[in-house]
Amino acid sequence: MKFMREYLLKYKAYIVILLIIILFLIAGYEYYEKYFYVLKDPERIKEYVMSFGKFGYLVFLMMQIIQVIAFFIPGEIIQIASGYIYGTFLGTITSVVGITIGSIIVYGIAYRFGRPFVEKIVSERDLKLFHRILEIGSMKYIIFLVYLIPGLPKDVLAYFCGISDLKFKDFAIYSTLGRIPGIAISSYFGANLISGNNVTLIIIAITMSIIFILGVIKGERIIKSIVH
């Protein structure tokens, strides 16, 4: 028993990292094999959430938190579902709270276990991208812009921030502020799915698609232009 206790204490960091990786694998399996069809459809998400009765709100909040930690889960659909279920205002608040909590957890995980862990779950391409972007100017304002501009891998960025020189307080504030406009638009879109206002939905979808494509292609250049 003493040997086992000493072994666990010596390698506790590696054990925790292994458990987190296992959690990722389980979440990936559950998502792709069981819940992919649910997460593509706001109505199915609503049915799933409402099946928990009075605990439905907490379940949905947990879904928002998990989609940030397991960044391969499409957060946009869940944000749209938030507006679809709770309306624009409460849906926005719910998504902001859940995503902020998830981002804080991610930052803490990365801060605690360091670069070796982050390099195991974040691609080298994304790490190089964030290295370049965060060297453009003041780190906290760059973080705000990255979270504001659609098309950049925001949830992955939270892991990178945990191993950067960015203070936790600045990360929490500026990442949340940057997310709010996009979350509000997604919630508004979801709320309008019920009303059947197709013109509004089409305008929002086309506009956000164009902005998203520009963010993917020109995101880094846009940030440089704004900062300079």
Score class of each variant (00 low, 15 high):
Y57T: 11
Y107W: 09
K2A: 12
K128D: 08
M139F: 07
T207E: 07
H228A: 09
I183K: 00
R125T: 08
L23P: 04
Q64M: 14
T92E: 09
I77P: 05
E30G: 09
S82Y: 02
L193Y: 02
I222Y: 02
L134G: 03
K128T: 07
L152R: 03
S103T: 04
Y35A: 08
D155P: 03
I133H: 00
G178S: 01
I15M: 13
Y35D: 11
N192L: 13
K54E: 13
S123M: 08
I194Y: 06
L58V: 10
A13W: 00
E76D: 00
K46H: 08
Y14Q: 14
L8I: 14
V106A: 11
I173S: 03
V96K: 04
E30C: 13
D41M: 10
K12I: 12
I15N: 09
Q79G: 13
G56D: 11
F212E: 02
F52G: 15
G137L: 12
I45T: 04
K10V: 05
S225P: 00
I93L: 15
I66F: 02
K140Y: 11
S51E: 12
V216L: 10
L25D: 11
Q67R: 13
I105L: 14
I143V: 15
L157Y: 05
F171E: 02
P150C: 09
S175Y: 05
I163Q: 09
